[in-house]
Design a protein around this nucleic acid. Structure first.
Lengths: 128, 128
DNA sequence: ATTAAAATAATAATGATTATTATTTTTATA
DNA sequence: TATAAAAATAATAATCATTATTATTTTAAT
């Protein structure tokens, strides 16, 4: 559980501290600030590792590129179809329970749910 | 609505007739059977076009590569985490209505929902 | 029929992700 | 604590899905 190398620790810390839902590349850029010679491959490797450990997860429904977040279970996401911005979204009333129960009944491993929108910035831009 | 070129028609027909949820590459292979010199780029272009028209859509929650299906609205999907097999799944009771209403209330454009499992074949294989 | 617009084939380019490999770091054990 | 085995890493090459380009062909509109 705690056998985290310094790099692995860094990747995790970086994601925890970023308020957005970064791509691997963004995590890499952020990591370089503290560990200038960290390798992109290391970031990918550790993201995969941490995902397998259940410490972090990919935001479902992003089709351009994988985006990561810690604590995926507690909320869902609103994804802008235009710019890809991702915003945390509380589950609508009872929905989480419903889905979890359904998964349990049918022996599914889990589910991926995201909502799509055009974020305010993109809407503003469209009007110009 | 009906300005479908022969290639576009072919792409659509192929997907309609495939019982699986093919990737662009698979659609391309299938198209080649009837139009041997069709280009992969054409398949991609027409998939994008048909998606924009709402005739077909991408199965949400597939992280390896995009997978397509017609009539996305009527059902959800079970995706095998190991081999990527996708199986149509009816919406659990009331769930569709709930999600649609939520989208309407919050002015979301839509949602993506998929369930994850390890399919029977992969489970069998794991036991060997 | 003639011209403009759209679609296409072929292929090159891009961009995210994964694999490789030589080296360094960590861990386990004597 | 020395030392050997295992794991992790940096650097970079390779892969693979997807998109862009461009010259050509097909379709649609006058």
């Amino acid at each position: 559980m705690a056998n985290f190398s310094s790099r692995r620790q860094a990747v995790l810390e970086v994601i925890k501290n970023m308020r957005c839902h970064p791509s691997a590349e963004r995590v890499y850029e952020e990591c370089k600030k503290s560990i200038p010679n960290i390798s992109l491959a290391t970031v990918y490797r550790n993201l995969a590792y941490l995902e397998k450990q259940g410490v972090l997860g990919r935001v479902p429904g992003c089709s351009e590129m994988e985006r990561y977040d810690v604590e995926l279970d507690g909320h869902t996401h609103a994804i802008c179809k235009k710019c890809g911005r991702i915003v945390d979204l509380p589950y609508p009333e009872n929905l989480k329970k419903l889905l979890d129960e359904y998964c349990k009944d049918r022996q599914f491993n889990g589910f991926g749910l995201s909502f799509y929108n055009i974020c305010e910035d993109c809407q503003r831009e469209e009007k110009l």
